[in-house]
Amino acid sequence: MDSFAIVCDSSHDLPPYISEKLRLTVVPYSINFGVDSSIDDGVMSPEEFAELLDRYEKGKGYPTTAAPAPSRFVEAFKANVKKGLSRILTVTVSGRLSKTYESAVQAADMVKEEYPDSEIEVVDSLSGSMAEGMLVLEAARVRDLGRPLHEAKRLLEEMRGRVRLLAALETTKYLVKSGRARSFQHMLSTALRIKPVITAREGAIALYSRVRGRMERAVDHMVDEVQRTYKSGIVAVVEGIAPDLREMIVHKLCQRLGINREQIVEAQMTSALLVHLGRRTVGVVWEEEEPQPS
């Protein structure tokens, strides 16, 4: 039996075949279409969901996303405890981006009160998407080595400061629709043909740079930064629904880093992220070189 169970929210963006292989318990976000209709993140394929988004984009009531309620985490924790996995490591999207971390902590306290022998630890990834996914991969590696729960938590909290995420957006209009950016910022970016590159900084999404021109220039800009700070191991590439952009960045990473495609985890954004970022988004996640002692 595993030394501990791993629970995470659906924004980790790991491909389904990896999630299944790692034996994850995934707690989904809710995607709301008005006040009367909602679906769980991951129920629809990215392509099906993107078609649905297109229909809503042309009308009123653009979808919103909601963090999992504590009750969803309680359900996930109890399911593992009842299977004999009373030690649980939970990894969530940044607490500065969502109430998911708060929900998981509340749920952990509730379950530990009902099951006093259980041990439930919650790690804030301080990021999201495949940056969260990289921590989940590390959690599974440590678990499969038979290491204890407290050691896994410590290693993830150390690693999260080294995991970098950059993402290039072809347009900011989805950020405007979802309330994450102002309309004048979108108009300015469109007029100047600017492709924003965003990053996670201290748990919040921040503008990393503005690249004028085509998306290829933004991709080159991201690959430059990966090459400058890449340590070793896997690299993750995540797309909205933009296989051409994914192929472009994968090819450049293999060339510039001297790695094989097998060292790259290729993933698609979850539906909850598509709501905010849109189809034509591509990102890269990697573990950077540790700072050298002075």
Results as ranks from 00 to 15, higher is better:
48 E>Y: 01
37 S>H: 15
40 D>I: 04
26 V>W: 03
27 V>D: 01
49 F>H: 03
25 T>V: 01
40 D>H: 02
39 I>T: 08
37 S>Q: 13
41 D>V: 00
36 D>K: 15
28 P>S: 04
26 V>L: 01
43 V>A: 04
49 F>L: 06
35 V>F: 15
48 E>K: 09
46 P>E: 04
42 G>T: 07
27 V>L: 05
29 Y>D: 11
48 E>I: 00
50 A>L: 14
52 L>G: 00
38 S>P: 04
50 A>E: 07
25 T>C: 03
40 D>S: 07
50 A>C: 13
33 F>K: 01
51 E>S: 12
23 R>A: 15
47 E>P: 06
47 E>N: 02
41 D>T: 00
28 P>M: 05
37 S>Y: 14
47 E>W: 01
45 S>D: 05
21 K>N: 09
40 D>W: 00
23 R>S: 12
36 D>P: 10
43 V>C: 09
37 S>L: 13
45 S>R: 08
50 A>N: 11
46 P>S: 12
36 D>F: 14
46 P>F: 06
49 F>K: 01
34 G>T: 13
33 F>H: 01
38 S>W: 15
47 E>I: 06
29 Y>S: 14
40 D>V: 03
39 I>L: 11
20 E>M: 13
39 I>K: 04
22 L>C: 14
29 Y>M: 13
47 E>G: 06
26 V>D: 02
43 V>K: 04
26 V>C: 05
34 G>F: 12
49 F>Q: 01
22 L>N: 11
32 N>S: 15
24 L>N: 12
20 E>A: 14
52 L>A: 12
22 L>T: 10
42 G>A: 11
27 V>A: 02
44 M>C: 09
42 G>H: 11
42 G>E: 06
42 G>R: 00
20 E>R: 15
25 T>N: 07
23 R>L: 13
32 N>Y: 05
49 F>A: 01
34 G>M: 12
28 P>R: 11
22 L>G: 08
40 D>C: 03
21 K>M: 05
25 T>A: 06
25 T>M: 02
29 Y>P: 08
51 E>G: 12
40 D>F: 10
29 Y>V: 15
24 L>H: 08
43 V>R: 08
44 M>P: 01
44 M>L: 15
32 N>G: 03
30 S>D: 08
28 P>C: 09
26 V>F: 02
26 V>M: 03
27 V>F: 09
32 N>K: 10
36 D>I: 11
46 P>R: 08
